[in-house]
């Protein structure tokens, strides 16, 4: 069984890329990792097509955990997930966690072969309950 994949979605392409670099340093190539940042015009923001592409790139049969920064990143990620094929849609979750810490923790959990639900739980432990 493949490891859960990780997608990082930020309004800023630099934050998305930088967070992905930190994840890569932690887990190497043991998890599929992709990021999306910036709006369809290249400014700060998020874009449904680029999030969908990132999910495709990070795809794993074990599912994909998505880490987001602010509101629109979450809403656009949820929209992108809904537009996936039915058999993939239920295997992608948006984690309610801080983007950098959440991505690193989620990827570390994923690299040990944990389920999508366990990966999400580990990331979300970082959020105030």
């Amino acid at each position: 069984m493949a490891n859960v994949g990780i997608v990082i979605v930020s309004h800023s392409p630099k934050i998305a890329e930088g967070a992905a670099d930190m994840v890569r340093q932690m887990v190497g190539d043991s998890v599929n990792l992709a990021y999306a940042g910036g709006d369809p015009g290249g400014g700060l923001g998020t874009s449904v097509p680029s999030i969908r592409d990132a999910i495709d790139r990070a795809w794993s049969e074990a599912g994909v955990a998505v880490l987001v920064d602010l509101g629109g990143a979450e809403t656009n990620s949820e929209m992108a997930i809904e537009m996936l094929d039915a058999e993939r849609r239920d295997r992608v979750v948006v984690c309610n966690a801080p983007i950098v810490e959440g991505a690193v923790m989620a990827a570390t959990e994923a690299s040990g072969g944990s389920t999508l639900e366990a990966v999400r739980r580990t990331a979300e432990e970082l959020s105030p309950q």
């Binding site: 874009s47 449904v48 097509p49 629109g72 809403t75 537009m83």
Partner: peptide, 15 residues
């Protein structure tokens, strides 16, 4: 609107 707007208003008005 979903594909082009970006920001939260894209998915909201798109929806």
């Amino acid at each position: 609107l979903v594909m082009k707007v970006g920001g939260a208003s894209g998915p909201l008005y798109g929806t």
